[in-house]
Amino acid sequence: MPEGHSVHRLARQFADVLVGERLAVSSPQGRFAQGAALLDGHVLTGSVAHGKHLFLGFGHGLVLHVHLGLYGAWDFGGDAGFRGASSIGAPRKIGEREVYGDDAGPDAVYAGPPEPVGAVRVRLAGGHGWADLRGATTCETLTRAEADAVAARLGPDPLRNLPGDREGFIAALAKKRTPLATLLMDQKVIAGVGNVYRAELLFRQRLDPWLPGSVLPAESAGLLWDDTVATMSDGVRDGRIITTPPHYWTRLREAGAGEAGTLREPEDAHFVYRRHGLDCRDCGTAVALTEHAARKLYWCPGCQRS
């Protein structure tokens, strides 16, 4: 499932290429025909991400709310002025790369979006570009009040990091005897963290996945929040999840794995995620894997002990 950094990149890309344009909104697949009709012909005025939720606001007060879920993805394209990824979302290939198309030449003539391919739930088309949505779990047209109610049910988003968010996260953990591995995936506790960031952040902070939130000292909870903000912000910048600092890549170069500063993928990007059975990068203990709350949990039994 695309994690919060991907949805924030989506919001930024919409702001760059479609906000301010009057859009033709349609549902080639047909499943979103009524919702699309409510948005068709109106100006896109803003794009906001909160956790894994994307909110596209239109000038007449309605909002397109999208949650990509496991399989959702947006495809983009346009004229020579279009810049950005041509595809953001799931299904994700190993390595968390986004897909970039070839830039149109300076003399290219934009003739509008291509014919829809596959089950396009909704198409947004402006004068210079277009965006197609496929496979999303949620795609709905809401009033502003309804969209605000959706956001209100979510926990603080580390990529927004608003005043009081850090304190709210610390307080939420202190009230729960639930394991940290569960709490980091609870979107009402912290919005945007998924399975990759969950495993990597717990390792980076050397936290036992089964430690109850109420047992974690407030100082440690604050450091966990701070690392989440920093690491996910890197994901927004890079367009992929990389949690290993560069000196780990140099260590791999010294072992004959590549040039200094060059990140092979996916082997070098993570500490524990999808590395079960391999040696921990720090202590040499075999990385463990188990099922936890119907998701795969990766951790190092040597580094992550209470």
Rank of each mutant, 00 (worst) to 15 (best):
H50W: 15
G51S: 07
K52D: 10
H53Q: 14
F55N: 01
L56D: 06
L56H: 06
G57D: 13
G59I: 11
G59H: 06
H60Q: 14
H60M: 11
G61P: 09
G61V: 12
G61W: 06
V63L: 03
H65D: 04
H67Q: 09
G69S: 10
G69K: 10
G69D: 01
L70W: 12
Y71P: 00
Y71N: 15
W74P: 05
W74Y: 11
D75R: 14
G77Q: 02
G78E: 03
D79F: 07
D79W: 08
D79G: 15
F82G: 03
R83W: 04
R83M: 00
A85C: 08
A85M: 01
A85Q: 05
S86K: 01
S86W: 00
G89N: 03
G89F: 07
P91A: 03
I94L: 15
I94V: 10
G95W: 05
R97P: 15
E98W: 08
E98L: 13
V99D: 12
V99P: 09
V99C: 10
V99S: 13
G101C: 06
G101M: 03
D102H: 15
D103A: 14
D103V: 01
A104E: 13
A104M: 10
A104N: 11
G105A: 13
D107Q: 14
A108G: 01
A108Y: 12
Y110S: 08
A111W: 04
G112L: 01
P114G: 13
P114L: 02
E115N: 13
A119C: 03
A119R: 13
A119G: 13
A119W: 04
V120M: 09
R121L: 15
V122C: 08
L124D: 08
L124M: 11
L124H: 04
A125D: 08
G126N: 09
G126R: 02
H128G: 11
G129Q: 02
W130R: 11
A131K: 07
A131I: 06
D132N: 09
D132Q: 07
D132W: 03
G135V: 05
T138V: 15
C139D: 03
T143M: 04
R144Q: 12
A145R: 07
E146F: 01
E146G: 13
E146S: 13
A147L: 01
D148S: 10
D148E: 14
A149E: 12
A149T: 11
A151K: 15
A151V: 11
R153Y: 00
L154C: 02
L154W: 05
G155R: 02
P156I: 01
D157T: 08
D157N: 09
P158G: 04
P158F: 02
L159K: 02
N161M: 03
N161Q: 07
G168E: 05
G168H: 07
G168Y: 01
